[in-house]
Every structure is written in structure tokens, then in C-alpha cells.
Design a protein around this nucleic acid. Structure first.
Ligand SMILES: [Zn+2]
Ligand SMILES: [Zn+2]
Ligand SMILES: [Zn+2]
Ligand SMILES: [Zn+2]
Lengths: 171, 171
DNA sequence: CTTGAACCTCCAGTCGCTAGAGATTGTACG
DNA sequence: CGTACAATCTCTAGCGACTGGAGGTTCAAG
């Protein structure tokens, strides 16, 4: 029985105190015994479980996935394939995210490269934002349908955010 | 005056109806005029502005950044440098995020490679999650201090989530 | 004039925390 | 033993950027 206060547990696992309480609330970390004054007291098993949770969070797993991984880890003689599938699924998500961000990165770089650093009126950044068709990347085309959107070009004129105008009824 | 209903605007910009109302609520899109029955009616300037917003969101800009970009784009004769700085800042964030995710990806791949696909008890995935020191990557080391954490090895034993135990006071 | 799709407002929920208010407890020092 | 004060407690709200639903009203076609 190591009998740690929540602050001690926090220091040992580098998980913040409110986060520990939050994990208890969502049922990720079991409620520990309490002192007579209802303060939490943790043992080494809690340290281990919280360490697991933290590491999994650092690796980007969602709480639901961690919940499953924890419950799987409680049955050492069962096949580990469900755990592997969770990790694989997560890896695939990470890979998709990387691919997206690489597209983003290249587009942002192009925008910066193309900008002549003059006036806003000629700034490529503003132009590209205002007109999707000037864009090199392919985002947003995935939901087909909606054919032949905007072809407006040239002046970039939006309604400016002024004070809340008095909502004049029309017709 | 194109005089579009919110549904029409939604179809033309591929932004969902509740999202359009949300943008109005947070002051990103100006409140349009209304019919006598208080339904919104949009013009082509709204279409353009919402298109700008959507494109910027697709490129990952935060609403605050979009707000600034929009207000910058309203002054075409001013220098575009502030806009460029916003994009550069965003690009740097994207690059940081990519680097993080690449670390994650390599660690997840290692975990899957090392797993023998046997029982949970020998699963490398579970072991690595339970013991940070088995990990190849460097995350979480950035907050120095707290030296020489866990050295527990072998059995992975956590307190299992059972029903809420009756919180026995100790000492 | 009737129908029914589209619109309205308001509110709650998402995810994983984080921060605060205001009250209570634990502990170290004198 | 008394006191001070840090740490803990519960409860609630907020973040960002939406998304969905309930319950009521309006528009436009037939
Ligand atoms: Zn520029
Ligand atoms: Zn684009
Ligand atoms: Zn395995
Ligand atoms: Zn690690």
C-alpha cells in the first residue's frame, strides 16, 4: 500500500490532478479508497493503470480505445488480436491525418511562395482563399453532386461585419 | 440580389444550415436581411464570404484567424504582410503537427511489428503501453524534473473497473 | 386553401480536459 | 494543542467548432 494522495499520484504519473478526477468520473480509473475526511488515497496499482492511460493518450488513443485496451489487458491468456486491431485502426487514422496535413502543408507553402508581399488586393493568399478554383489541392471535392460552383473572379467583395444591422424585412 | 434562402446558400457553399447559423451567431457571417416571417435571405456577397470561410476552414485555419483574414481582405490597398504572417504561423503549426504524427506513426508501426499475435500476456502492444520505458519515441520527456519513474516490469496488473466499491475509509 | 418541406429559436451534446468558486481536510511548526 | 496554510473536496462552467433535436412557424406549390 503506497497510499498516495492525489497530488502525489499526479507528480508520479505527470497527470494533472483535475484530469485524474476526470478519469475517475468517466470510469477510466477506479475510485480509490478514501480517508475519513473523504480524500482519495491511491496504491501502486493505480499508479500503473494511470501510467498506462497516460501513455496511451500520448500515443493519441481515444478514451474509448483506452477503455478497451485496459479491459483486454486484464485477460492475459486471451488472444491479443483485438488489441492489435485497435492499434491498427488508430495507425490508419494517423496515416490519413498525416496525408491530409501534407496536402495542407503544400498548399500553404504554395500560397506563401506565390505571394508578392505587396498589397492585400494582389495577395495570392487572399485570392486563393476567396476562390477555391485557384487552389492546387483537391479537398472538398469528395462530396460529389453540387456541380459547377462559383466562377466569380477578380474583386473580392464580402459583406463587411458592421454593427448588427436592423434586419430590414424585404418584400 | 440573389435572395437565397439558407438552404439554397447551404447547397451552393456546401456549408450545413446549422453551421451557417452558427457562423452568424459568432459574428463570422453578417446577419442577412429577413423576410416578414423572419426567414433569412442572402445575397451573392454572402455566398462569396461564406465560400472564403469554408475554404479557410478546409485549410485548417481557426475561426479567429479567419476573422482576421476577412477583415484584412476588406482593405485591398493595405500591405498583405499581416495575412502572410497568419498563414506562416498556421503553416508552422501544421508542420509541428506532422512531425508529431510521424513520431506516433513510427511508434505504432513498431508496436504492431513487434507483436507476435499470441496472448495478451506477451503482447508487445500491451507491454509498451504499460511501460513507457519500452517505448522508442521521446514524447513526454519535455517536462524535465520528476526523475526515475517506474521500473516495474513483468506482470501488468491494474485495479480492474468493477462496480463502484463502497469507498472504505482507511486509517 | 391545404399541405408539407423548409425554416425558426433555443438548448444540449460532442471530446478531453481545464479552471474556478467556495468549503473542508491534512499536516507541519511552534 | 492550536494555528496556519497548502492541499483536497464537490460542483459548475468553459474551451472549439460544430451537430442534432424538440417544438413551433412560414413559405411556396398545387
Ligand atoms: Zn500576401
Ligand atoms: Zn483549396
Ligand atoms: Zn499483440
Ligand atoms: Zn511512449
Amino acid at each position: 500500500m503506497t497510499d498516495l494522495s492525489i497530488g502525489e499520484l499526479s507528480r508520479r504519473t505527470a497527470v494533472k490532478v483535475p484530469t485524474i478526477r476526470y478519469y475517475e468520473q468517466i470510469g477510466l480509473l477506479p475510485a480509490p479508497p478514501r480517508t475519513e475526511g473523504r480524500q482519495r488515497r491511491y496504491g501502486s496499482d493505480h499508479v500503473a493503470r494511470l501510467g498506462f492511460i497516460r501513455h496511451a493518450r500520448e500515443l493519441g488513443f481515444e478514451v474509448e480505445a483506452i477503455r478497451e485496451l485496459l479491459s483486454l489487458s486484464a485477460a492475459p491468456e486471451r488472444p491479443c488480436e483485438p488489441a492489435d486491431r485497435i492499434v491498427l485502426r488508430h495507425l490508419e487514422g494517423v496515416e490519413r491525418r498525416i496525408a491530409q496535413l501534407e496536402l495542407l502543408r503544400s498548399e500553404l507553402r504554395h500560397m506563401l511562395d506565390d505571394c508578392r508581399h505587396g498589397q492585400v488586393g494582389e495577395c495570392r493568399i487572399i485570392q486563393v482563399l476567396a476562390d477555391h478554383d485557384l487552389c492546387r489541392h483537391e479537398h472538398g471535392r469528395m462530396e460529389s453532386g453540387a456541380p459547377a460552383r462559383h466562377a466569380r473572379r477578380g474583386s473580392t467583395r464580402f459583406p463587411v461585419m458592421a454593427g448588427p444591422d436592423p434586419a430590414i424585412p424585404i418584400r
